[in-house]
Design a protein around this nucleic acid. Sequence first.
DNA 1: GTCTATAGAACGATAGAC
DNA 2: GTCTATCGTTCTATAGAC
Lengths: 192, 192
Amino acid sequence: MASATGQRPRGAGRLQLHGVALRLFAQNGVEGTSLQAIADEMGVSKAAVYYHYKTKDELVLGVLAPVVEALEAMVARIRTRRGRQARLDELLTGVVNLAVDYHEQFAVMLGDPAVGALLTTHALTQGWDELAHLVVDPSDPSTRIALSLFGAGIVGPLRDPELSKLGPEVLREQLTTLGRRLLQIRRRPTPA
Amino acid sequence: MASATGQRPRGAGRLQLHGVALRLFAQNGVEGTSLQAIADEMGVSKAAVYYHYKTKDELVLGVLAPVVEALEAMVARIRTRRGRQARLDELLTGVVNLAVDYHEQFAVMLGDPAVGALLTTHALTQGWDELAHLVVDPSDPSTRIALSLFGAGIVGPLRDPELSKLGPEVLREQLTTLGRRLLQIRRRPTPA
DNA sequence: GTCTATAGAACGATAGAC
DNA sequence: GTCTATCGTTCTATAGAC
């Protein structure tokens, strides 16, 4: 694990690569997944994987790029909101939608220690603490704890195979309800 | 990663070993922590570590043994309770206490994919699904989702350095409150 | 875009001296 | 209980042919 410039791949087989790599990363962790294992799963050689990405770090960032971009877009959307309650509501629905739509990427990004080390230089990591202070009252540890609990816990039900069988619509609704209950948000504010 | 018989170490330096290994496991993951790194951190050689444990797998299980035993004791305690509500309440307070008292072990055990692979043979893993059906109504996905969310999320605030500064008593109380809110438990039932 | 072959480093684990 | 030295394997990554 060294540097990572975020260069994007050029081929079309990159979609299959992203899919296979993401599945293995989510299952065995980033450090527990060798490029050899990815290549074997794809039925190609290790060198073929290196054609798409120069290093393993860049592969990881490439796989996670969609959710990172979506997360940045969400943060930007929150900044346009005025008032903590409106921001908190936007954060809640945004996180739920992201977690449901990208639940494997989400789990790898939040849960894998190797990814944390990779993203320390990334702008997103610095913006996270700032976001927390933007959304909840710093002198209110209770809400901060609730938010932290929700953010870390949301991947739990999505990982459970029996629960994820309920489908994205049900999970979206249930997680939103649980989030509102946890953060004590009564209703959605008037949009924009 | 192969077999693991759970042999306990014989020395006194094992406490320091457990401490150092646990800290590195929590920080960089199990697969991201080499025995060389542990040895360096302790100021000894790699072979000195192998004196305490024959394999890395056994070291991991040795480090996690206290929380695994505490978890098994908690499960046994839940079985003695009658009625879902009483069991759910026992589970809530038990998990909160375990997570606060063993928060690093808890995070490693639940979050690290390598540990999951190690514990598949363990009796605890099989008992978990049974426990879920014992505590919540199988036809009530909402509570199951809430429980899964809480179990996965509880390590979030405990990992946050700014939140863990609040101290174990505050965290215990806050997490219990949030758990009751999430699971909609009104009050503690009469004990035993 | 994929292959074979391989370099170079790090890993888990062992042997044997002290 | 700790050391040095080493074995065999696996890993990331590269070179060069097709």
